[in-house]
C-alpha cells in the first residue's frame, strides 16, 4: 500500500449507499379450508366452515377455530345477503383503489355466518352509509366467475328494512 493511501481515504467522499436488490418469488398455497371457500365462489356460492365445538360458522372455513383449536371445517352454505356491521368511507385515491373516491367499504355479516366478510357497497351516497343496512351481493357474469371474492362485484341495498342492532351486536 502506498504512503498516501490514508490521505486518499480521508478525502474520499463517504459511501452512503450500497444498492442491494432483492427479488424473491413465491407460489402461495391457499390450503384446504380457504380453497373450499374460493372454489365455491367460482360456483356462485358462499361456503364457510362450522366449528364442531363452539358451532360458529367462519367465512372462510379455517384450519383451526381460534377459540377451540380444532378445524372449523363442517361445510355450511350461507346467504349472499346480509347485514352491514360497520363501514367506512374511502375519500383518498390510491393506486389499487377499485373506484374513484368516495366509496363505501363495509363489513357484512352474511345470513347464516358468524364472521363478517369485507366488501364494498355501491348504489348509495356515502353519507347514507350506516350500520344495520341490509345488502345483497351483485355477482359478476357467469363467464367471469372464478375462485376469488372478486366474483362478487359489490353489494347493493337489498330493499329490506335495516336490521336491529341486537341482531348483529355479538358479531362486531
Amino acid at each position: 500500500m502506498s504512503d498516501d493511501a490514508p490521505d486518499a481515504a480521508a478525502t474520499a467522499a463517504p459511501v452512503t449507499m450500497v444498492p442491494s436488490h432483492v427479488r424473491l418469488t413465491y407460489t402461495v398455497t391457499a390450503g384446504r379450508h380457504l380453497s373450499s371457500y374460493l372454489r365455491a365462489l367460482a360456483d356462485r356460492r358462499i361456503v364457510g366452515g362450522r366449528c364442531p365445538v363452539c358451532t360458529k360458522v367462519y367465512l372462510p372455513a379455517r384450519g383451526a377455530c381460534p377459540t377451540c383449536g380444532v378445524p372449523a371445517d363442517q361445510p355450511v352454505e350461507v346467504a349472499d345477503r346480509g347485514t352491514v356491521t360497520t363501514f367506512c368511507v374511502i375519500r383518498i385515491p390510491f393506486e389499487a383503489a377499485p373506484f374513484p373516491p368516495p366509496y363505501v367499504a363495509v363489513a357484512i355479516l352474511l345470513d347464516g355466518a358468524d364472521m363478517p366478510i369485507f366488501h364494498l357497497v355501491r348504489g348509495i351516497a356515502p353519507e347514507e352509509a350506516r350500520m344495520g343496512m341490509r345488502v345483497q351481493a351483485r355477482w359478476v357474469a357467469d363467464d367471469q366467475l372464478g375462485p376469488t371474492l372478486a366474483s362478487i362485484r359489490w353489494f347493493e341495498l337489498s330493499g329490506e328494512p335495516d336490521a336491529a342492532y341486537e341482531t348483529y351486536a355479538n358479531h362486531l
Binding site: 398455497t29 390450503g31 384446504r32 379450508h33 380457504l34 379455517r62 384450519g63 383451526a64
Partner: peptide, 8 residues
C-alpha cells in the same frame, strides 16, 4: 396445507 393446517 397452509401454515395453520400444518401446525394444528
Amino acid at each position: 396445507r397452509e401454515e395453520v393446517e400444518l401446525v394444528q
